[in-house]
Computed example of a mutant assay.
Amino acid sequence: RRKEKSALRFSLFIGFYRSTDTQTVCGWSLAYGENKQNKNPYGYYHCSKNGQGLRQCSMHYIRYDVLYAYVLARLQYWSMLAQKDEDNLLKRLLNASDRERNSAKKKQAAELKKAEKRKAEVDGLFAKMYEDWSAGRITEYNFNMLSEKYQNEQKELETKIRQLHETMEAAVQTAADAEKWIALMKQYVNPVELTAELLNTLIEKITVHEAVKGEDGSREQEVEIYYRFIGKID
């Protein structure tokens, strides 16, 4: 039975946890281990980049029970909000990035208008140049040289315009993504335990930072949860 519990602990967060150094994100997954030397043995996750003997990252870790309790508490919190006040939760999710999103939207709209205006100008110049070449007002050499120049600029502008449209459409999708996540959250009313299904449905990844010890010996550790569709909201 103890082996079954260890296997469950090992597999539960597989694919979700990532370790980060104090200064740089190492990007490696955390490996599961057990401290059996303590009076009360416990499971924990540690940075696999350090654990494989590479020593390229600090030996930071987090206890299984601490991570489990934190993730469960956050999901219970969001579940409670989704059940009790869906409208305010939606506003909270959207307002969290509204200012940044609106600023970016204005900038993108201005860039799009400028690119579309220049594209119309280049199209007009290209058409006028063709008329001049047909009428013999410019040489074929000059026509070919200018033609290549205008065609290259047309392609660059078309790519930029397409990318700006895609970016602006993605920003509009934010509201739909928030609603989608809330709908998923409402399916899990006050979860009392973590399961692989629950984590796969609601969470994209979990990032664990190295713990910082205070002068009084206390230990503080940052854990970031990135939820599906909406990213980090804590």
Rank of each mutant, 00 (worst) to 15 (best):
L164A: 05
Q187W: 09
A170I: 07
Y188L: 00
E204K: 13
K186A: 10
N200Y: 11
P191R: 05
T195H: 05
L202R: 00
E197W: 00
A176M: 12
A196H: 07
Q173P: 03
R162L: 10
A183C: 02
A176L: 14
P191A: 07
T167H: 08
T195Y: 08
K205P: 08
E166V: 09
E169R: 13
A196Y: 07
Q173E: 14
I203P: 06
A176F: 13
T167R: 11
M185Y: 03
Y188Q: 07
L199Y: 04
H165F: 11
A183D: 07
K180C: 12
M185Q: 11
T201N: 08
E193F: 05
E166Q: 11
M168V: 00
L198Q: 02
A196M: 09
A178I: 01
L198G: 03
M185R: 01
E193Y: 06
A175I: 09
T195K: 06
Q187V: 11
A171L: 15
V172Y: 08
H165D: 12
E197A: 12
D177A: 14
H165I: 12
A196N: 03
Q173T: 10
I161L: 05
A171E: 15
V172A: 15
M168L: 09
Y188I: 06
E204Q: 12
L199A: 02
E193A: 04
Y188T: 07
E197D: 13
T174F: 11
H165W: 06
Q163W: 04
L198W: 02
T195I: 03
M168S: 09
E179H: 12
E204M: 04
E169Y: 10
W181K: 01
A178T: 00
A171V: 12
E197Q: 09
E179G: 15
E193L: 03
Q187S: 11
I182Q: 08
A196P: 00
E179P: 05
I206S: 06
L198M: 02
K186I: 10
I161Y: 02
A183L: 06
A176H: 14
E193D: 04
R162V: 05
T174W: 01
N200G: 13
V192M: 13
M185A: 13
V192H: 11
L184A: 04
